[in-house]
Amino acid sequence: MSARFAAGDRVRVRKAYPPGHVRTPYYVRGKEGVVSRLIAEHPNPEERAYGRDGLPPIAVYGVLFRQNELWPDYQGPEGDTTEVDIQEHWLGPLKDDGG
């Protein structure tokens, strides 16, 4: 499988709240970020957590979020960020209209 995103791509995290084992923290769901790096392709931990093999492997990216995007009331400077490792199936491209 080939990675769908590259460093520099703007992405939006899927806004979904499944009740099982997931690796995408609640606070980034639905948020916009920028891919900082392709980390690797790994068997999907969300499958492996239930005893399955998690294949095919899935790409994991470092995604950089501006703190102001994550927390509209963020008190610190404009430039502060949080980077989170996110699997490809949690990411969608960001359209020009911001959607």
Binding site: G20, H21, P45, E46, R48, A49, Y50, G51, G54
Partner: peptide, 11 residues
């Protein structure tokens, strides 16, 4: 045991 299973079981 995978660490993924272990995390799931803790959660």
């Amino acid at each position: 045991i995978t660490l993924d299973e272990h995390r799931r079981a803790i959660e």
